[in-house]
Amino acid sequence: MKFAIMVNEGVYQHQATDSAYQFAKAAIEKGHEVPRIFFYHDGVYNASRLTEPPADDRNIVSRWQKLAKEHNIDMVVCIAAAMRRGIKEENLAENFRISGLGQLVEAGIQADRLVVFGD
């Protein structure tokens, strides 16, 4: 089955992004596909390459990058939400791309399920 995921909260402040990550990982481990993860609202902060958590904590941004690279996940950051919050190409982490909200609707059309994680 194809699962699209929407992440609506930023890093560390709220558990939503952790839950989304664990869900995506579990779906892949079960043999499902996660073709796209769409980052919206403060979720765009998941794509900041300037994030530097303490060494003994999970690195949310690099964890997403690794998962995307290994499983060919299209990680899309909403351009309108990103521009509002200062996420641009110059500080965008690798494996993320900035695109329009149409990518969310398209993911909803193409995937079998869309699961929303937020606050």
């Binding site: 351009i79 329009g100 149409g102 609707v105 059309i109 193409q110």
Partner: peptide, 21 residues
């Protein structure tokens, strides 16, 4: 403008109509 001047080149052309709420 607020949505970043999105174009619809990537619009899904599969003809699938889903119920979105």
């Amino acid at each position: 403008e607020a949505t970043g001047g999105i174009d619809f080149e990537d619009e899904d052309a599969s003809g699938v109509i889903k119920k979105f709420m």
